[in-house]
Structure formats: structure tokens, C-alpha cells
């Protein structure tokens, strides 16, 4: 039984409700905002500021300059490296899609739900070890004296080891695929898991063959997963340092150029300019992707 005082208290609470709501919003978002400000925006601002500072033999001089942008980022060498890096990112994304989609499709429609999740978890097992070891592990497999070449020689299919298996675009693609196919397959699997199987039956009832069902039903519904997977793979691959460093024949990507700037001469301003430029390119591409596909569909 309520009392008069309780009623008054209720009225007071109701009066205060809007202000309490505002503070709750602030309390809920505050930590996140603070976190991102402290550990993302401020560091990025520092990196951006460094990109306009002068470099002088191992030292950063606090004098404004555009040299790191005009002389480094917009040099023909760097632009060609950017083009190569984006090309690599695009090819790797496409490759991961070609391999990852059928994998996700199989796990969704040809295994049980639990089996699919379990299989995806198995794909994560290699990530329990370091990226460096995962990359170096290709040496005894693809190298001149590696398993593949020995097998080919033993079977007589080749008479001398295939040199293009290692330190080549091929070995890089293999390295990227190993690292990132799970980042493509997992979101697609989740996307496909949301597909109502009645829709597939309806397509069949309407005399749609499997290909038409895929094109008109499954593919559109899986696009959010494809978009998220592509975003992951593209961003991760163009920022990858280990694969181009260890599996290429010495060709640079933007990340290895950044490493070169730091590792030889401690040229932080030039490295900062390259980093910001890479970030801007990635951000633009992700923005364009998100304008094309509504990834919030995956949560519905």
C-alpha cells in the first residue's frame, strides 16, 4: 500500500527522470568516449602532428614542414607502392572470398549448427601461435627443399625445384590466405545462419533452380557478412607487415616502407605521414563499402 510520502517521492522521481536519463547516457557512453579519445584520437593527433615535423639524422626537430608529405607520401615511388599495396589487398580479399564463401556455405547448409561453429573454431587454432611462426612455417613446405618440391621431384612431375613457390606473389597469396580466410568465412557464416530456410523452400516452390536460389535469395542475404569479411581482410592485409617481409622477394608494401623509415634512421615524421596516408586510404575505402552495403542487416 502506498503512502502519501511514497506518492510524492514518485512524483519527484518522475520530475527528475529526464535529467537522470541524460546522465545515464553520459555515464554509459562516457567510458567509451574517454577510451577512444585517450587511446585513439589523441595518439592519432600526435602521429598527425609528427607528420609535419622536420627530420634531421636520427632526430625530430620541432619545426613545421610539408616535406614528409610532398617528398615522401606523394613521391612517385610511394604512390606506386600504395597502388601495389591496394592491389594486393584487393586480390587477397577476392581470393579469401572465393575460398571463404564456399567454406561458410558448406558449414551452414551441410553441417549442423554446432558442427559449423566447431569447424570455424578449428580454423582459429593456428592463431594460437604467433603470426611470425605461421609465416615462417611455409619455408619447409614451399621452399626449394620443402615438402611440395620434394614430392614433385619424387613423382617426376618436375626435374628441378619450382622456385616460384617461395619468395613470390604466389607465396604471399598463400600466406595471406592462411591468415585471413577465417576473417572472411566467419562473418559470412553468421550471415548465412540468419537465412530463413523457408525462403529457400519458397524459391524451390517457385521453380527456382539452385543457382537462381543462390543468386536471388542466398547471396543478397549474405551480403552484410561478405561486406564485413571483405572489410576485415582488406584492412588487415594492406596493413600486414610479416607476409611481405618474409614471403616476398623483397618487394615493399606501405607497411614495409614504414618499417624502413623507422628501422633505418628513426625517421618518425616520414613514417607518421605514411601511416596517416594509409589510414586515410583505408578509411575512405571502408566508408565507400559501408555506403554500398548495410552491415547492420547482419544483426537483424
Amino acid at each position: 500500500m502506498s503512502t502519501k510520502n511514497d506518492d510524492h517521492a514518485g512524483v519527484r522521481d518522475a520530475d527528475r527522470w529526464p535529467s537522470i536519463g541524460l546522465s545515464e547516457v553520459q555515464l554509459l557512453t562516457g567510458p567509451t568516449v574517454l577510451w577512444f579519445t585517450a587511446f585513439l584520437l589523441v595518439p592519432l593527433a600526435v602521429v598527425l602532428a609528427y607528420s609535419f615535423l622536420t627530420y634531421d639524422s636520427f632526430s625530430v626537430v620541432f619545426e613545421f614542414t610539408l616535406e614528409n608529405w610532398t617528398g615522401t607520401v606523394f613521391s612517385s615511388t610511394t604512390i606506386s607502392v600504395f597502388v601495389r599495396t591496394l592491389l594486393v589487398g584487393g586480390i587477397v580479399t577476392l581470393l579469401c572470398l572465393v575460398v571463404g564463401y564456399p567454406l561458410a556455405y558448406y558449414l551452414r547448409f551441410y553441417t549442423t549448427e554446432r558442427g559449423g561453429i566447431l569447424a570455424l573454431l578449428f580454423l582459429v587454432i593456428p592463431f594460437w601461435t604467433s603470426a611470425l611462426i605461421r609465416t615462417q612455417a611455409w619455408f619447409p613446405i614451399l621452399g626449394q627443399t620443402g615438402v611440395v618440391n620434394k614430392l614433385l621431384l619424387w613423382t617426376g612431375l618436375v626435374h628441378e625445384p619450382l622456385s616460384w613457390l617461395m619468395f613470390s606473389p604466389f607465396s604471399q597469396l598463400v600466406g595471406y590466405l592462411q591468415n585471413y580466410v577465417v576473417f572472411m568465412a566467419a562473418p559470412i557464416f553468421i550471415s548465412l545462419s540468419q537465412v530463413d530456410e523457408d525462403l529457400l523452400d519458397a524459391s524451390e516452390t517457385l521453380r527456382g533452380n539452385p543457382a537462381e536460389t543462390f543468386v536471388n535469395v542466398v547471396w543478397p542475404l549474405s551480403k552484410p557478412g561478405v561486406a564485413i569479411g571483405s572489410m576485415f581482410v582488406f584492412v588487415l592485409s594492406i596493413g600486414n607487415f610479416i607476409v611481405p617481409q618474409f614471403l616476398s622477394g623483397g618487394e615493399s608494401t606501405v607497411s614495409t616502407l614504414i618499417y624502413l623509415q623507422i628501422n633505418n634512421g628513426l625517421n618518425y615524421p616520414a613514417a607518421a605521414a605514411l601511416s596517416i596516408a594509409l589510414l586515410a586510404v583505408i578509411f575512405s575505402l571502408v566508408f565507400l563499402l559501408l555506403r554500398t552495403v548495410d552491415i547492420t542487416d547482419i544483426a537483424q
Binding site: 607502392v81 601495389r84 618487394e251 615493399s252 614495409t256 616502407l257 623509415q261 633505418n264 634512421g265 625517421n267
Partner: peptide, 17 residues
Amino acid sequence: WPDNADYLLSQWKKFRS
């Protein structure tokens, strides 16, 4: 570490890339 190291590094990118 050569006197023209800054120039060397800027040119070395050509070799790396």
C-alpha cells in the same frame, strides 16, 4: 652512417619497392 643518409634512405625506397 653516411653523411648523405637522408638522401640514401629516400632513394633506397626505390630499391625496396
